[in-house]
């Protein structure tokens, strides 16, 4: 497994690179990995959709892995935003894997009765990458 590219990709439309809404991307073996952060403002998930679709288009990755390890809380609104990211990715022909969902987050998503179809899950980043290799292929 080699890290071919890593770093922060910026939307060319954004003139201010440090406005707190930037999203960290890593590309490992052709899988686009997004690390989700505990949201510090209401626009985080909004900008996430733009950032992710932009990065997907630029990199041409067939698999999107969202690492939710740092996410400790989620509400209905946030999950709808996250869903949008997944749906957009699906339209672009990309399969989404969400990795490392915490117990509390999992319980609240189920309690909120959100639609949890259309994406795969994995225990952690490692098993998400393995899952991508075995189930989806290069």
């Amino acid at each position: 497994m080699t890290v071919r590219e890593s770093g922060v990709m910026q939307d060319p439309k954004s003139n201010n690179p440090s406005d707190g809404t930037e999203t960290a991307f890593n590309i490992i073996d052709g899988r686009l990995i997004v690390t989700l952060h505990p949201k510090d403002d209401d626009f985080y998930f909004d900008s996430l959709c733009d950032d992710v679709s932009f990065a997907l288009g630029k990199s041409g990755c067939g698999v999107l892995i969202m690492d939710a390890t740092h996410l400790e809380l989620i509400d209905d609104w946030d999950f709808q935003r996250l869903r949008r990211v997944i749906d957009v990715a699906a339209l672009m022909g990309t399969k989404t894997i969400i990795a490392g969902v915490r117990p509390g987050v999992a319980a609240s998503i189920v309690e909120l009765g959100c639609d949890i179809g259309g994406f795969s899950t994995a225990l952690n980043l490692k098993s998400a990458l393995r899952f991508a290799d075995t189930e989806i292929g290069p």
């Binding site: 969400i98 990795a99 915490r102 117990p103 999992a106 998503i109 189920v110 949890i116 899950t121």
Partner: peptide, 12 residues
Amino acid sequence: IKITKACRLMGC
């Protein structure tokens, strides 16, 4: 069903 859904969300 809820328990199994939450499990699956965690990747189990």
